[in-house]
Design a protein around this nucleic acid. Sequence first.
DNA 1: TCGAGACCTCCCGG
DNA 2: ACCGGGAGGTCTC
Length: 441
Amino acid sequence: MGLQAVSDWRKLPLSLAELCIDTTLRCGQSFRWRKIKDEWHCVLRGRIISLRQDSDHLHYRATWPEPTTGPAPGPMTPPPSVPPARGKDVGAEEDDTESLLRSYFALSHSLSSLYKHWAASDANFARRAPAFTGIRILNQDPWETLVAFICSSNNNISRISQMVLKLCAHYGPYIGSIEGEPFHDFPGPEVLSGSEVEAHLRQLGFGYRAKYIAETARIVSSEKPAGWLLQLRNPACAALGAPLSSLSEGDDETAAAPPTYRTAHEALLQLAGVGPKVADCVCLMGLGWGEAVPVDTHVWQIAQRDYNFGKGYKSKTLSKTMYDAVGDHFRKIWGPQAGWAQSVLFTANLKSFAEQASAAKSEAVVEMANVERTALVSPPLSSDGGTDTGQVFGSEHTTTLRTRSGSSNLAMTMMKQSSDTRQGDERSAWRASKRRKTAAT
DNA sequence: TCGAGACCTCCCGG
DNA sequence: ACCGGGAGGTCTC
């Protein structure tokens, strides 16, 4: 299967402060981008997108599958959202790749303005962020985001990436190859809901997540109405191509009021393998809810270490109450795009980015010695998935811990306060969804 | 409500 | 060489 339709390189004016792909594409939002020979590649809506970046432009091109091939070997199911018109003339102006990229990178938000806002209201952000500029929240396909983050539970980034790659290679339609490496689109829920899928995924090394994926795929593809996931999107956030109100399914209660972050979060909790953290990842990176703050072990560490929140909390695992309290705390500090701010600090806290943090630090020292040099944009990718040994945090870690630890009461107070206010409903809904989930099985 | 354990696998450090 | 713990959690009791 040889021919691929490859477009010319085009470019979008964009500063590194607005978007740094070397950071954004590997900080654990999408697990599907691959860097080959200094260019990033990923299949988005039926085409391979290739990216490279310089100081003031994002360069891109699209590679379309060979037209009129007929049903290719393997499952040729429609991509997650909307099957694109394939095999068009690639040079044409009707190519929607630019608008796809604007949507995918959520370019309508001014990132530098947001950074300024967060830095002004949070000294810790102001201290950490300068080494991690250009980190945006991606506006991904909700189904892909959902499955990827079901895979993420109790797992590490490099294995998550491997799992997602296998999922695409075995179940997604083949789109094309780059430098001899095959690229597949992400498989839709229909193909993943077959009866043999769970066993197969287990065989592929998915572990207990195999069951969650198959079960969630079944629920989404056959129990929920078409477009159910897409309708959970933030209406204020431009949708990824798909028109959102095009589904006029006059169901009884499903055609209800527009969703809110809370209702979207709650709806996702019904799915198998989806707890509060995964639900927030999907809300933030797949549904456009900028206030969603996924609280994982890293964010929980950050809350305790840098914000003195939840000190003295004894349990090993986060209770639902504490989970919500952490998110509310950060929403109070950072505002309606708290999830975006969170990802900056989250990235700064990742072991694989420790080098970047330390480089920035020594750089600050060097700068004082009056040498100008502003690199720190793209640390070398360490042999694909190999987590580099980071002990760089050591010194700072201890100094931070040294700061006085008196305000555990404050954290508890805020937690209490936020939990009485508006979360009664949400939590009873959470319990209800738990019940439904267990009843279903 | 809350808190333990278990859960698949891989990988790293002692 | 072998082993315990952790990895961007969730489910069950």
